[in-house]
């Protein structure tokens, strides 16, 4: 079965999938939060490789810069800032049978998604309004097509994201700063 596909494509797929899945499993299994964050970088690299294989070159670069760069650094910063970089104590199960039930629910979800994918056929006729019929392509055309879509069809959504980011920054500052005047009754450390 593998022989019917180009060998380089198969190698890229296997490497990307292995990086993603092993990284994700490490994130949820290792005890130290710092190791989890580093495993998360591994997952993001796998996803970036898959994006390149799928001709999404701009998003692959953004995946590395924003996710593996900014977001993971933010995680690591908070881990160090809070001083929780020691092994996490997962003491037993507060809810009876949580893990088996979680595993069962996840299994049903994934199996349902896979069965749905196997049984559905995707309409490939009309493309959405975003491209005006321009197909997505690799190389510079990918960036050009994505930029055109974002700044024409999705212009309002793009403008609204700027408001979202401002709100997020202000909210994070308000949440994370020390409230001296309002916190007289709290046992603030």
């Amino acid at each position: 079965m593998l022989a019917t596909y180009a060998i380089p494509d198969v190698i890229v797929f296997v490497v990307a999938s292995a990086l993603m899945l092993v990284g994700a499993v490490l994130v949820i299994t290792v005890k130290n939060p710092v190791h989890s964050a580093l495993s998360l970088i591994m997952t993001f690299f796998g996803i970036a490789i898959a994006f390149i294989e799928l001709d999404a070159h701009f998003l692959a670069a953004v995946e590395i810069i924003v996710y593996a760069g900014a977001i993971v650094v933010l995680f690591l910063f908070v881990i160090m800032f809070l001083g929780v970089d020691r092994p996490d104590v997962d003491t037993g199960e507060p809810l009876v049978g949580q893990r088996p039930l979680a595993a069962l629910g996840v299994l049903i979800t994934v199996a349902g998604v896979v069965v749905m994918m196997a049984h559905s056929h995707w309409v490939t006729g009309a493309s959405s309004a975003s491209t005006n019929g321009i197909p997505s392509q690799g190389g510079n055309d990918n960036i050009k097509a994505l930029g055109t879509a974002v700044f024409t069809t999705y212009l309002y959504a793009f403008e609204i994201t700027s408001a979202l980011l401002i709100i997020a920054v202000v909210g994070a500052v308000i949440l994370a700063r020390k409230e001296r005047s309002l916190d007289l009754v709290g046992e603030d450390a």
Binding site: A56, F58, L59, V62, E63, V66, Y67, A70, I71, L74, F75, S127, S128, A129, S130, T131, I134, P135, S136, N142, A145, L146, T148, A149, V150, T153, Y154, A157, F158, T161, L164, L165, I167, A168, V169, G171, A172
Partner: peptide, 20 residues
């Protein structure tokens, strides 16, 4: 269809805001 990639672009922005 480039629309899927545009959606990922917005997911990235929302994810960054959510993490913050």
């Amino acid at each position: 269809d480039i629309g899927g990639q545009a959606a990922v672009f917005f997911v990235l922005v929302v994810a960054a805001a959510e993490v913050t």
